[in-house]
Simulated assay, not measured.
Amino acid sequence: MTDPDPLLDRLETNVQAVTDTEKAACMDSLATARVMVDRVIASWDAQVPDEPHDQAVIEVASDLYFRRTARNGVMSVTDSELQPFRINRDPLASARPILRPWLPAGMGVA
């Protein structure tokens, strides 16, 4: 039996996933986010501590999770008092500020 993934628990809490379908979407988003963040870190041969790495993965996974309900980049909401809002089309945008201190100066995140 495998140990539960602590990042999956954090992601499910972050996006308020309750149903089995939402939790499955969290698993998919988390797997993709890990690949994306790790690829950026590897491309700069950076040494990122665990906590900022994990936070970057959670941020990217959250963006990927919410993209599934954001047709054309605009997320609709069910509460009549809230306005629809635009989802960032680049899921790594939220990870850039987190990873920036460990990347070469002036390079940013590709």
Rank of each mutant, 00 (worst) to 15 (best):
E12P: 05
Q55S: 03
Q47E: 06
P4D: 10
D20E: 15
R86A: 11
D9M: 15
T78A: 10
P4R: 14
T2C: 02
A46N: 02
S29I: 05
S43N: 12
L30H: 11
L92M: 10
V18Q: 13
M75Q: 07
A24F: 10
Q55Y: 00
P104T: 08
A56G: 02
A56H: 04
G73R: 04
I98W: 01
R67F: 08
T69Q: 12
D38C: 01
R67M: 14
A93Q: 11
R89N: 11
N72T: 03
R96N: 08
M36Y: 04
T78L: 12
D50C: 00
V74L: 11
W44A: 13
P52F: 02
A31V: 07
A61K: 03
V40W: 00
S62W: 03
R71P: 00
C26D: 12
S29D: 06
A46L: 01
M107I: 07
R86D: 08
A70I: 01
D79S: 12
V40S: 07
V57R: 04
I87A: 07
G108A: 09
Q16M: 12
E22W: 08
D20M: 12
L8H: 14
R71S: 03
R67E: 14
H53F: 05
R86C: 02
A25Q: 14
T69I: 09
Q83C: 01
G106M: 09
